[in-house]
Amino acid sequence: MQQIINFLIRNKTFIIFLVLFSIALGITFQSHNYHNTKLINSANWVSGGVYSTTDNVSDYFHLKEYNEQLLEENKQLRKLLFNREIENTDSLTIADSVFNQYRIYTGRVIKNSYTTERNYLLIDKGTSDSIRQDMGVITSQGIVGIIENTSSGYATVQSVLNTLSEINAAVKNTNNFGSLQWDGKNIDVVQLVDILRAAPIKAGDTIITGGMSSIFPKGIPIGTIKDFNLDISENYYKINVQLFNDMSTLDQVYIIENTDKQEIEELEESLNE
C-alpha cells in the first residue's frame, strides 16, 4: 500500500497529465459520434456573447451583399406571389393545415466555420425563441444544416459541411431518393449517395431535399449535379453535388419548424415497438 502511494506521489505529474489527456480524448470521441448532444459546444452565453459582438462589427462590411441577397429573394417571392393569383382561380383550394405545418423563424449566423472536417455554425436564436434540436436551417439559396445544441439565446447548427451530416435528398422531378453526405474535401461540393443505378441522371440536374424526414419539407434546393460515378458495389451512384449556397458567406438564415414532427415521431416509434 505504502509503495502504491509513493508511486502515485512520485508520478503525480504524469498521472494528472494522463487524466486530463483522457478527458480531452473522451470529449473528442463523444463529439465524433453522430447525433449525440455535445458536452462542449459554443451555444452558451460566453461564446455566444463574444461572437455576436464581433459579428455586429463585421456585419457592416457586408451590408451591400446582404441587401442584394434580400432584393433577389424578394424578386423570387414576388414572382411566386403574382403567378399564384392567376393559377389559383382554377385550382383546388388547399386546406389551411398544410400551410401551417411548417413555421419559419429567422436568425443570423454569428460564427461560421467551414475549414474543419466537422463544421458547426452558431446562430443568435435559442430555446427562448422556440428553437429546438433537429430543426432545419436554410437560406434563400439552399440548405445550411440542422440545429444540434441549444441554449436559451443561441444554437449550434450542424452544417452540411460536416462528415457526420446525413440529409435525405432527391433528384428534382424524379422519385430517386438518396442521402446527402460530405467527404470533407471541397467546401462547394457535397456527395449524394444511394441513388439507384437505373435513375436517369445527368450533369446539371437539380438536387432538392427529399421530404422523407420530418426535418426539411420537400423541395428545398440543394445544388446541381457536378459529376457522378458508380460506387464499389456498382449498384448505386455516388454523385458530386455543387451547392447553391456559398457556405463561406452565410449570414441571414431561416429555421424551419415542422409542427407535425412530434406526431410523426410518435407514430414511427409505435411502429418500431
Partner: peptide, 28 residues
C-alpha cells in the same frame, strides 16, 4: 501548468465546437 494548458485548449474547443482536440493537443 497542466491544468491551465488544458483550460486554454478547452476554451478554444468551446468556442470552435471542435470536441476536445485543442485540449488534448495543449495538455500533451
Amino acid at each position: 501548468f497542466l491544468f491551465f494548458s488544458f483550460l486554454i485548449g478547452l476554451s478554444i474547443d468551446i468556442f470552435s465546437d471542435s470536441g476536445g482536440v485543442h485540449s488534448a493537443a495543449s495538455v500533451a
